[in-house]
Amino acid sequence: MENLYLPQLSIIDKIVDETSDTKTFTIHFADREYNKKFRFKSGQFVEASVFGVGEAPFGFASNPNRHGSFDITVRAVGAVTRAMHDMKKGDVLGIRAPLGNSFPLKEVKGLDILIVAGGIGLPPLKSLIDPILDARKDFGRFIILYGARTPADRVYKPILEQWSKRKDITLLQTVDNPDDGWSEHVGVVTTLFEKIKLDVKRTVAYTCGPPIMIRFVIQDLLGMGFPEDRIISTLERYMKCGVGKCGHCAIGHKYICVDGPVFSYQQIKRLPER
């Protein structure tokens, strides 16, 4: 990267409504050469700009094996995210990417995979789920636990539907507040642990979601006897630069934007503030 702060102009190809406040954007870089060469890894993120409003970080939500375009899933919570929600197909964003480290994947071949996602935490994990499905036979059992506030608050409903039909995925979903049509589990995501049998010795767990959920998930996984280096989580902090310079995302002497956002619990527990 030459100029750390200058974004690449990028075109919105497609916008899909996921929930009442969340949309998925499919994006490609305007510069054709740049777009052709661009690659990212599971767990990395982008800084997306709406010029005149600002910039905000979002995890890649698509398969890194898919080239030519990528997805981000965005919940409208503030200035930049609302401005993005007001955009249409063909509109131009600024993108700086790829930023941050990535989920360990090659290292866990042969193991069972447990994914625990909460709400808007599923999109960054999708960039991991997709390549695992591409190489499904390289891994053992594949269990996905997903929790949301209500059935309507779940992102990727059609994809969840597909996953639930696959024999090689165990997908369990739960909501805090069910509606009339809801036939699956009710309760926080950690209550799903009772419903699955894990071979703790040969499983690696990945989790992403609100900080409070992550805390309880890690606690339960430790209780089940998961080794600390097999619990992989993302940490979220307020970010500005994404390149380790502005200081906003620092925890101890680590910068979540360059040393993270992916950490094992072994690393997390050594951070002075968490």
């Binding site: 702060y5 700009s49 005149g52 600002g54 910039e55 500005k240 310079k245 502005c246």
Partner: peptide, 10 residues
């Protein structure tokens, strides 16, 4: 001390 904020302004 080096920390900074980033802002857009029209």
């Amino acid at each position: 001390c080096t920390c900074f904020d980033v802002q857009d302004c029209m």
